[in-house]
Design a protein around this nucleic acid. Structure first.
Lengths: 148, 148
DNA sequence: GAAGATAGTCCGAATTTCGGACGTCTGCAA
DNA sequence: TTGCAGACGTCCGAAATTCGGACTATCTTC
């Protein structure tokens, strides 16, 4: 850490945290309680379902930890564990109905925050930001298979 | 959370995490052990020292938690608590020698990672990214007084 | 079909987080 | 000046989180 002036780390983290907090607050306001750790795992779940170990690797957290978090998410009804058709050892963590409802409840706030960003930055910079970040993720994502 | 395709949250978080992990690994390799929570507080400490409550607000974490983390950082010799000349109730958390040494030990890796980014993105996009993020922080930083 | 790797889980201990309640000190108001 | 609301940080203790070790089931390979 450290890099006096414009600390690149914080430059990325501050907006992230802002967005995360807004979205989480919206979900909570709508009755969908969820902790930060839960949210960080939840947001990585693929539309077709993700394996526990994929989530663990992507989030850089041990399998046991993700397992425990998924337990909580499952208990709360946000996700479901379904057998993986390709591998009997594995199970896919999939977003359940209540999880989708939670996402939908927060969607307007998410859109609103992002819209605020677009207004503040202007269309050009906003589009650039998105594009450049997408390129940056190409080389910083540990679990590239998912993003590409 | 959620926003199918290019999830803005992850777009910001993935590179952040990558940088954080690289820097932390470098520090550890040089003998400066530090947990993620510790690092997240540590990186917010101002050059002139920061108050506990400032750190707490900036990092969006209760004072007690930051207090406990600062205890650890202090015990490890990374920071020092000094009286705040302006307010006898407060104390300033300042980076200590060993903390500066830790920063220096990781600096080359930090520079290297950022340089990798610059090479991958190209000078123009790299500069744009930095500039745009700096503008974004203007409206997403909860503790604006610090950054501006 | 035996050996080795991989998916996920169970167990339990260490660590971390943080609400509540306090003691101290400041700064404003009367 | 004195009084007092409010801000600064700390102590205490309970709850939650994290995650190493060890294990079973299953897949892969030779």
């Amino acid at each position: 850490m450290a890099d006096p002036e414009p600390n690149f780390g914080l430059l990325l983290f501050i907006p992230y945290r802002h967005l995360e907090e807004s979205v989480l607050a919206a979900a909570r306001g709508a009755g969908y309680e969820m902790s930060i750790s839960q949210a960080r795992v939840f947001q990585r779940i693929d539309a077709e379902g993700s394996r526990l170990s994929e989530l663990a690797e992507a989030a850089q957290v041990p399998k046991q930890t993700v397992g425990s978090i998924v337990d909580q998410l499952e208990l709360a009804g946000y996700v479901r564990r379904v057998p993986d058709p390709d591998d009997a050892r594995a199970r896919l963590v999939a977003v359940a109905d209540r999880g989708r409802a939670a996402i939908e409840s927060a969607a307007p706030v998410l859109a609103e925050v992002v819209e605020t960003w677009r207004e503040h930055l202007g269309d050009a910079d906003f589009a650039d930001l998105r594009r450049i970040l997408a390129r940056l993720v190409e080389i910083t994502d540990l679990d590239r298979s998912k993003v590409r």
